[in-house]
């Protein structure tokens, strides 16, 4: 793991009008790790994700993904770079007029010139990999449950075998069993496909189950980064509240308090 970081953010500043979201934020994501990004509502977790994938233009700062700057790349290079990551949005953001299989085929159709039967087979493999049943392939997003939509969104994100996957709150709104299954899925696909995962989450169980490292966003920057064990020692009111609270104890991050 002495590799250069796959995502390198330096001095990131983003603001909406006069509201400053990030002020000099630094972050490194290492190859092959699952990095959990946590923070209170409005600390700019999703904004950070959007800035890294180039959906949002930050006011200042450098963002490099796989050694290339996201901001100052010619469109052609950016297009090639974009193919090396996949993004799963909060509710899957599937195209509602396409079936699940067509959704997964969409990136292949747009980016590559493959025969239809190959696309069909590959999309089928991806849909099965994320654990969706066989009959889900022909269904429209509105016919799926929330958990299935998220899985289908994940399948679309990994359609082109990206090196990095960005997941925006993959377990939000899922029941605990579904959320645990999704956690297992992330780990499993990370191992099988050699992914680097950038995981925005609120879910302490998820953090505990899948993340190699955790980055805490607070006070407009990355307040702390490290393993969950490291987080317990951070002296900051929000971090203490978050990792020492009753829910953290329930997620077995903390040893139970002596009676």
């Amino acid at each position: 793991m002495a590799d250069a970081p796959v995502i390198r953010v330096r001095g990131l500043v983003t603001r909406f009008g006069r509201h400053v979201v990030h002020d000099g934020l630094d972050l490194d994501v290492r190859r092959g790790e699952v990095l959990g990004v946590v923070g209170g509502s409005g600390t700019g977790k999703s904004v950070l994700l959007r800035a890294i994938v180039g959906l949002l233009r930050p006011a200042e700062g450098q963002i490099e993904v796989l050694g290339q700057s996201v901001r100052d790349t010619p469109p052609d290079a950016y297009r090639r770079l974009r193919r090396r990551w996949g993004v799963m949005f909060q509710d899957g953001a599937l195209f509602s007029s396409l079936t699940v299989r067509q959704n997964v085929e969409a990136p292949m159709r747009e980016q590559l010139d493959l025969p239809p039967d190959v696309m069909r087979t590959l999309a089928g493999i991806k849909v099965r990999m994320v654990g969706l049943p066989e009959d889900a392939q022909g269904k429209y997003p509105s016919e799926l449950s929330g958990g299935m939509r998220k899985r289908a969104g994940f399948a679309r994100a990994i359609a082109l075998d990206p090196e990095i996957v960005f997941l925006d709150e993959p377990t939000a709104g899922l029941d605990p069993i579904g959320a645990a299954a999704f956690d297992r899925l992330i780990r499993q696909l990370r191992d099988a496909l050699g992914l680097t995962v950038f995981l925005v989450t609120h879910d302490l169980d998820s953090l505990h189950a899948v993340c190699d490292r955790v980055a805490v966003l607070a006070d407009r920057r990355v307040l702390a980064i490290g393993s969950i064990a490291d987080m317990l020692d951070v002296d900051h009111p929000w971090v203490r509240e978050y990792f020492h609270g009753p829910r953290a104890r329930a997620a077995k991050i903390m040893p139970p308090e002596p009676a």
């Binding site: 069909r120 087979t121 089928g124 493999i125 099965r128 990999m129 066989e134 191992d191 099988a192 496909l193 050699g194």
Partner: peptide
């Protein structure tokens, strides 16, 4: 070992015969 794992994963997720 990494490739073998990937191949096993794909093999487990191949389309069922005569599907589609």
């Amino acid at each position: 070992s990494h490739q073998a794992q990937l191949i096993d994963t794909v093999r487990a997720n191949m389309p069922p015969p005569e599907a589609g």
